[in-house]
Amino acid sequence: MDTDAVKPPVLRLRVALVGLGIAFVVAAAILLAVTLSVFRVREPVMTMNGIAVKGFGVAPSGGSSVRLTVVADVSVKNPNVASLRYRGSETTVYYRAARVGGAAGPPGTARARRTVRLNVTVDVAVGALLGDPGFLGDVAAGAVAVTTATRVRGRVSVLGVVHRRVVLEMNCTATIAVADMSIHNQSCLQRVCL
Rank of each mutant, 00 (worst) to 15 (best):
M46P: 01
R99D: 05
T175H: 13
I176W: 09
R114S: 15
S157F: 11
H184I: 11
R113W: 07
T109I: 13
R165L: 05
V6W: 04
L17H: 02
A72R: 04
S83D: 11
G137V: 10
F135T: 09
S61G: 07
V45T: 06
V10A: 15
I22A: 14
R12S: 12
A52W: 02
L136F: 10
R111Q: 13
T69C: 00
A143N: 08
V18G: 12
R151K: 14
L130P: 02
A141N: 11
R151Q: 13
P44Q: 00
V70A: 13
S182R: 11
E90P: 02
G105R: 01
L13R: 08
V146W: 00
A29D: 02
G105L: 03
G127D: 15
I22R: 09
L31A: 15
V124Y: 06
K77P: 01
G55W: 08
R14Y: 10
K7M: 13
V144W: 11
I51H: 04
G154Q: 08
R164P: 08
A145R: 04
L17P: 01
V25I: 15
A5W: 02
A174D: 14
G134F: 14
H163K: 06
L84A: 03
V38Q: 02
M181L: 15
Y94P: 00
V93Y: 05
D132T: 12
P60N: 06
R85T: 08
T109E: 12
V166Y: 04
L118E: 09
A98K: 10
D138E: 09
P133W: 15
A5E: 07
A97L: 14
C172Q: 00
V74S: 02
A98H: 08
L136A: 15
D180G: 12
